[in-house]
Nucleic acid binder design. Structure first.
Length: 583
RNA sequence: GCCGACGUAGCUCAGCGGCAGAGCAAGGGACUCAUAAGCCCUUGGCCGGUGGUUCGAUUCCACCCGUCGGCACCA
């Protein structure tokens, strides 16, 4: 899908790696995930393609890990079957949302296994991994080791009876499973035993200094919350982290004597960015192509910029651990930016895929069943949690859709295209001499490309969309001022000139909205009498030639009335939440 | 408990050293091309609290209160 439209005059194309967080294949993702990590990189990638940059946008489903094995056991299927089924569902949702991945794969591919094992081996050889034996919780009935949060018991601090081994949900304190009073396995209810187990650890302290240097150099363009998080960990001093688990579902450890252990999900998942890039290259018949985004030159400089779009819960993996792994491996580009988003909340509560709320947020398959992808993308972007948690409510969704997307932008387009049909026979009129207000309007449309472009490049996607909407607002004001429906009776040439001017702005909006609202932008492109893809256009003002005949338009978006919305939301309440664990 | 972010109009959110902003909601008006959409005007805020720095603080600093997040085997 790496389209390379006309390179903009005088611009040297960049290599832009758009790395998107890997969804955990435990079940469908919801709107919060889409707002946090999936829609933003798509906007970013689409914009850069229109700028003529070489964009590689990769991701895939994270298929391994304990939660999937537990869910699979419960359903009586294999972990592979469950993960693959969920992967297909996630991929389908992403397709319908219009996410333009160059490759959306999984962590089950041969190439991913190979690259992960190579990474492991290289880090081991370089002395960045070590073995250590530690006690861990073991469920004698289920005959498996338990992650901390699969041990439950009474909180020693507050007496809460259902505290988890990693944290007490009641008082919020961080716990160790051995702290729990009357511990029990979440899987079988049995009393867990303590057993020693040997694992490999990533020696993060060895990277402390290099990471600090890198952060100092790079963080000028990072979001404050990301820098704060990373600096917090660095100030506290990094600790080694286990990167293997007692599991049979994961990438095997490439050493003898570790057949009953696997590489842990977070270690292999981040390697997915690299292995997916390689898979993409292989699939297009140019196996070396991935290097153009990844491999440092002789002076150690990165070939372009790598962006990692994640939710804030993923910051440590992408801004500390993965950079450390890359440093240890050597020769590969470190992240340029990790534009992590905050969370989308529902009535102030963090959205979790594992808990049910009476009025909850829809999962993506449901949302896409009920609403147009562009309406969803619009809401998630105009209300994006870029600098803090933002709130989702159905009222707000309806209002943003009806009063902003439909009324301001959709209506501006529709009133103009309809007017062209009814009064000008559907033909773009020939303009007369431009009045000063026409020039001002056109100049504003041209200037918006630079404004929005700067905002998108700074990953201020919400601001960019606000700027696009502001242009639509300015167009509405221009139209009311110019009132061609009035001047038509007194000065037809003036009316024609006003309409021509306004249609040029619509022509600009078709390009400006393309990264944000890919479906309606394409629709509008066709209403403007053009064939081909709007997404292949360069990011610049595009004339709409006079005398062109335009097809009969339909409204780009539809309003959601109260009754309809209530009915749709009511349906969500009746459904039960799918199996699965929070990612 | 420790660390961090946030607290701005009824609602959702911008702004972050120099007269408080937008959209929506509320009230009024002119228009009719348009999905009763769009446009104009008005109302509406001790910018969480208390101190401090400064000629000047919503903006910088300290403390307090509140919300959320992190605290390394949840990804």
């Amino acid at each position: 899908m790496s389209r390379h439209p006309t390179t903009l005059p005088g611009r040297h194309p960049d290599y832009i790696l758009v790395s998107v967080a890997w969804p955990y294949a435990s079940g469908p993702r919801h709107l919060g995930h889409a707002a946090g990590a999936y829609v933003p990189p798509d906007i970013f990638a689409r914009y850069h393609r229109m700028m003529g940059d070489h964009v590689l946008m990769v991701s895939g489903s994270d298929m391994h890990g304990t939660p999937i094995t537990v869910a699979a056991d419960r359903l009586g299927v294999s972990a592979r079957e469950l993960a693959e089924e969920n992967h297909l569902g996630i991929a389908e949702s992403f397709r319908r949302l219009g996410l333009s991945y160059d490759l959306y794969t999984t962590t089950l591919t041969p190439i991913h296994y190979r690259v992960t094992q190579e990474f492991f081996t290289r880090l081991l050889e370089q002395g960045y991994l070590f073995q250590d034996t530690q006690p861990a919780m073991y469920d004698p009935e289920a005959q498996r080791f338990l992650p901390d949060r699969y041990v439950e018991g009474t909180c020693p601090h507050c007496g809460y009876a259902d505290a988890r081994g990693d944290q007490c949900d009641n008082c919020g304190r961080t716990l160790d499973p051995t702290d729990l009073i009357n511990p029990r396995s979440k899987l079988s209810g049995a009393t867990p035993e303590t057993r020693d187990t040997t694992h490999f650890f990533l020696d993060l302290p060895k990277f402390q200094e290099r990471l600090q240097t890198w952060v100092n150099a790079e963080s000028g363009h990072w979001r404050p919350a990301v820098l704060g998080f990373v600096q917090g960990w660095l100030n506290e001093g990094l600790r080694a982290r286990a990167i293997t688990r007692d599991l049979d579902w994961g990438v095997p450890i490439p050493l003898e004597g570790f057949e009953d252990k696997r590489i842990y999900v977070w270690f292999d998942a981040v390697i997915g960015y690299l292995s997916a890039s390689m898979e993409w290259a292989e699939r297009r018949g140019d196996p070396e192509a991935w290097k153009r985004w990844w491999v440092l030159d002789a002076d150690g400089n990165a070939p372009g910029r790598s962006y990692y779009f994640v939710g804030k819960d993923n910051i440590p993996f992408h801004a500390i651990i993965w950079p450390a792994m890359l440093m240890g491996y050597g020769g590969l580009a470190l992240p340029y930016d990790v534009p992590a988003n905050e969370f989308l909340t529902l009535a102030g509560q963090k959205l979790s895929s594992s808990r049910t709320y009476t009025a909850r947020l829809p999962f993506l398959p449901e949302a896409l069943e009920l609403f147009d992808a562009d309406a969803i993308r619009f809401f998630l972007t105009i209300n994006a949690p870029e600098s803090r948690d933002t709130d989702f409510s159905w009222d707000e969704f309806q209002r943003r859709n009806n009063d902003e997307l439909v009324a301001t932008y959709g209506n501006a387009v529709h009133r103009l295209l309809s007017f062209t049909q009814s009064r000008f026979g559907g033909v773009v009129p020939m303009p007369g001499p431009l009045a000063p207000e026409d020039e001002v309007m056109l100049e504003r449309a041209r200037a918006t490309f630079e404004t929005v472009g700067d905002q998108i490049e700074a990953v201020r996607l919400r601001d960019g969309l606000l700027s696009v909407m502001a242009l639509a607002g300015a167009l509405n004001r221009y139209l009311d001022e110019a009132a061609p429906w009035k001047t038509l009776k007194t000065d037809p040439e003036r009316a024609a000139t006003s309409l021509w001017t306004a249609l040029q702005v619509i022509s600009a909006l078709r390009v400006l909205t393309a990264p944000y609202l890919p479906f309606s932008a394409q629709q509008l492109h066709e209403y403007l009498g053009e064939k081909g893809s709007v997404h292949a256009l360069p990011w610049m003002f595009r004339d709409l030639p006079a005398a062109r005949r335009l097809p009969t338009p339909q409204p780009l978006f539809r309003k959601l009335d109260d009754e309809e919305l209530a009915g749709l939301v009511g349906r969500l309440d009746e459904e039960t939440v799918v199996t699965g664990e929070p990612i």
